[in-house]
Amino acid sequence: MSGFHRFQGTQRYIASRDLQDAVNVALTLERPLLLKGEPGTGKTLLAEAIAEGLGMPLIRWHVKSTSKAQDGAYVYDTVQRLNDSRFGEGDVSDIRNYIRLGPLGRSFASEERVVLLIDEVDKADMEFPNDLLHELDAMRFTIMETNEEVIAKHRPMVVITSNAEKELPDAFLRRCVFHYIAFPEPEMMTQIVRVHHPHLDGTLIKQCLERFYWIREQSEIRKRPSTSELIDWIGALARGGIDLSSMKREIPYLGVLLKKETDTRAFQQIMQRGKKIFA
């Protein structure tokens, strides 16, 4: 297995087998890895874990609704140059002083292979992924203003996350390795929790998980709590020192798990019903 199976998760990030495989396929084939999944399943964290696990620097590009593909490569600060020329500051004659590489540009220019995280790609305009195609394929772009070409010294490991707010174009999808992070099963979740709270008692974790999955199963709850919320919640419980017997009757620190008022209300109704049945 020539150099395959290199990424195996890190101490702080537990990756399932299929996720490891997807990462390694992307690494070996030098294709972008596209990640989807429920919010809070650790899509962004994965990029950090890959960087950490493989000892590569991480460059982040947080995409916003106004982001343009071009900005990722470089930005030419015209206004600054205009301003400088007006007030006679800086070296206006050299256009290079006003060209700043974006995250994509920096990942190309880097002396070593880096992990480039393009976070929440679906936040941007529909055309954004298509505009990136050429750069990601050829791993080079030209700075129009100076006619210089930036060529990747090492093809970066590109990790792209999406919350599925918009469908991504087919041409873009064809070039990616795709992985959907499924919500972890209880066994896996136990491992994840242990990583974050290593000193916790096994029974406490088990009880917390039972309650947590039970809450997720309630169909009335719209925004189901995620892994990251579970970890925060268990952290709060551990610090607050909750005795296990009360867990059956109430859920302490509910605000950590449920963020919507409607959900909290729905949950109270569920609990009320439960009390009637058991009473």
Binding site: M1, D18, D21, L29, K36, F178, Y180
Partner: peptide, 28 residues
């Protein structure tokens, strides 16, 4: 095919299942 050529799946059908899904299926 390139991935298989590089023996990314080894001989395991399970790995082939993941490999093929990661490359060929782009929508959950």
């Amino acid at each position: 095919m390139e991935a298989l050529g590089r023996e990314l799946s080894g001989t395991s059908l399970m790995r082939f299942y993941h490999l093929c899904r990661a490359i060929c299926v782009k929508r959950e």
